[in-house]
Amino acid sequence: MMTPALAKWHKYRAVGIITVKQQLHYRVDFIVRALFLLLILFIFIHLWRAAYTSSGSETIEGFALNQIIWYLVFAEAVTMACPQLCVRIEEEVKQGEVAVRLIRPIAYNGFHYMTYLAEAGLRFIVQLAAGSAIAWAYMGSPLFGWGWAGLAALLPGAFTVAFLLNLAVALLAFWVEETRGMEFVLQKLNFTVGGMLLPLELMPDWLERVCGWLPFQAVLYFPARMGVAFDGGRLAAFLLTQWGWAAALAVLCAFIYRRGVRKLNVNGG
């Protein structure tokens, strides 16, 4: 006989498994994203090279050129791995598919969390492989030692915070027709104050301090930074901050969901 906890675990695991299975059918989409990643990395390799050459120094804020490029590979791989949750939930609400979800004995948010993690995990592997190919060719091998372990340790939290940030916005689809605008802003915040294009250390001090108080750093900066420059002492702090934000955002999402589901207008009445 299965205990309730075990049955729950099987339930969510099954959602993850079927998501990965279904995702494997989107090979073209994988390739398209990987190609775009290659282009962006190609541009940035040239940009950072020119910048380091212009500045004349080997390292900037402790980052060598090699580290900056691999930082970008990690951060971009996480970015490109994240599914478009807002589009999905908005479509579900508009097309009325939310009905099919809500009649199931599974938490709506929990269902989406599992599909998000499964999809992001799979995509991350593909994107990392593509990004590594070009970075390796231009920059040499990524010998970051424990960095890889740090990266791996911070990834689950990174995707969790990314999911919750997106979910908070996506759930607004229960009220408004259009959430893309806000998703867009969110994405851009990740790009900048989240440290996708450059590590927070390279920002002006005042901005770096602001970023330190925001959840966006937990998604891209934490794993990428730990990946290229391992620091055992800060790893614990990073993990704690990450899951602290995750908890806070989870409470927020639960609150939004509970209010939203009462307001829900399912189309096709």
Binding site: M2, A7, K8, H10, K11, R13, A14, V15, I17, I18, K21, Q22, H25, Q95, G96, E97, A99, V100, R104, P105, I106, G268
Partner: peptide
């Protein structure tokens, strides 16, 4: 007009998921 079956997968996979879903 709204499918519960996973589009790219055979129905067997959805059945498997549902068995877990309903414990």
């Amino acid at each position: 007009q709204k499918s519960q079956l996973w589009y790219h997968l055979p129905p067997a996979d959805t059945f498997e998921l549902l068995s877990r879903m309903y414990e």
